[in-house]
Structure formats: structure tokens, C-alpha cells
């Protein structure tokens, strides 16, 4: 894709991120870190493409290692966020 197209998408995404993140309640700043951490594991998509090379050579091994690390990051990040968010409870009615 044209570099200007990518830059446009990048800038627009920055603005979306800016507004969405300011909307997060301060009480949930820890889950915000772990959720955003988990979704930054989306680099796994890049790792998958490289790990999917047919020839078994250095790039493929590096790609597989990257897939592994990103998978730990993704599953761990979502699981720990889920655990945290389960704890945020409303007041019980008397």
C-alpha cells in the first residue's frame, strides 16, 4: 500500500486511540494497561506470516519464536484482565 495511505491510517488511528483512552475511567487504569498490552500482541500477525515461510531457515525459526512470545503475551494479558475485571463489583443491595 502507498506510504501516504498508511500514514493517513496511522494518524487517524492515533486520534481514535486518544479519544477512546481518555474515556476510560481512572478506576480501570490497571485493566487498561493489561488489555492494551494483550492487544499489542497483535504483532503475532506479522510473526505468523514470517513463521509461515516454507523453507526451514533462520527467519522461520525467529518467526516461530516471535509467535510463541506474542502468544504468551496475548493469552496472559487477556486472562489477567478478565481476572481483574471480575473483581470490580457493584454494591450489594441490603
Amino acid at each position: 500500500m502507498d506510504i501516504w495511505m498508511l500514514l493517513t491510517i496511522f494518524m487517524l488511528a492515533c486520534f481514535v486511540g486518544y479519544f477512546v483512552v481518555w474515556g476510560v475511567t481512572p478506576a480501570l487504569h490497571s485493566p487498561l494497561m493489561s488489555v492494551s498490552n494483550a492487544i499489542s500482541g497483535v504483532v503475532i500477525v506479522g510473526a505468523l506470516i514470517i513463521a509461515g515461510i516454507e523453507t526451514f531457515d533462520t527467519p522461520k525459526y525467529l518467526g516461530l519464536a516471535a509467535v510463541f512470545l506474542a502468544a504468551v503475551n496475548i493469552f496472559g494479558g487477556f486472562a489477567v484482565s478478565h481476572r481483574m475485571l471480575l473483581m470490580f463489583r457493584k454494591k450489594e443491595k441490603k
Partner: peptide
């Protein structure tokens, strides 16, 4: 990757 990275970076 660009979209998600930008959002995480902004966060």
C-alpha cells in the same frame, strides 16, 4: 498492526 499499535501507543 498500524491501527492497533497506534491505539496502544496512545493509551
Amino acid at each position: 498492526l498500524i491501527i492497533v499499535g497506534a491505539i496502544v501507543g496512545a493509551s
